[in-house]
Computed example of a mutant assay.
Amino acid sequence: MSGNVSASRVLGDGNALLSSCSAFLRVLDRSGDGSDGFSAGACVGYVTGASDFNTVHAAVSGGEKEGFFCVPPDVPLGQKVRVLVQYLKANPSELNRLQSILTMNAFSEAFPCK
């Protein structure tokens, strides 16, 4: 990155992730005013992408490594988002960090590989 533009501003930080995933939960819980669709979609895309990356990482290791986290297959997307939002709210001093790092930390803590 050049100049004064930080990686977290370009790639998104925990504040943006908390905002979009809170919007997703409002949509899921039907407690929003109908204006959360785009932000909710951003959260869905991010959480799904992080989960997919984790699966690919494990697969390309030839079975020698597990992923960074091990979410049971029956855990629905809504639960993953709730775990992530809970982690972000519990760690407000970390919200300036990259979305990817925070997501990996949240899922590694909640869904450790055994």
Rank of each mutant, 00 (worst) to 15 (best):
M1L: 15
N4H: 15
N4P: 10
N4I: 14
S6N: 08
S6K: 15
S6W: 07
S6V: 09
A7F: 07
S8W: 08
R9G: 10
R9Q: 15
R9H: 12
V10M: 12
V10Q: 11
G12S: 04
G12V: 01
G12Q: 04
D13Q: 06
D13H: 06
N15A: 14
L17A: 04
L18V: 08
S20A: 09
S20H: 06
C21N: 06
C21L: 06
S22T: 12
L25T: 03
R26A: 09
V27Q: 02
L28K: 13
L28H: 14
L28N: 14
L28E: 14
R30W: 08
G32I: 07
D33H: 11
D33T: 14
G34T: 01
S35P: 10
S35C: 11
D36H: 03
D36Y: 01
G37V: 02
G37D: 00
F38Y: 14
F38Q: 11
S39P: 07
G41F: 00
G41N: 04
A42N: 14
A42Y: 09
V44I: 08
G45N: 01
G45C: 02
Y46E: 14
Y46Q: 10
V47T: 05
V47W: 01
V47H: 02
D52C: 12
F53M: 14
N54D: 07
A58Y: 06
A58R: 05
A58P: 15
A59M: 08
V60G: 10
V60S: 07
V60D: 07
V60H: 08
G62E: 04
G63M: 05
K65T: 15
G67Y: 02
G67C: 09
F68K: 13
F69V: 12
C70S: 06
P72C: 07
P73Y: 00
P73S: 14
P73V: 13
D74L: 11
L77S: 07
G78D: 08
R82K: 06
V83N: 02
V85C: 01
V85Q: 00
Y87L: 02
Y87R: 04
K89W: 05
K89R: 10
K89A: 06
A90G: 03
N91Y: 06
P92M: 02
S93H: 13
E94L: 12
L95K: 02
N96P: 00
L98Q: 04
L98I: 03
L98W: 04
Q99R: 09
S100G: 11
L102A: 01
T103R: 05
N105S: 10
N105L: 10
E109H: 13
A110C: 03
F111E: 00
K114M: 07
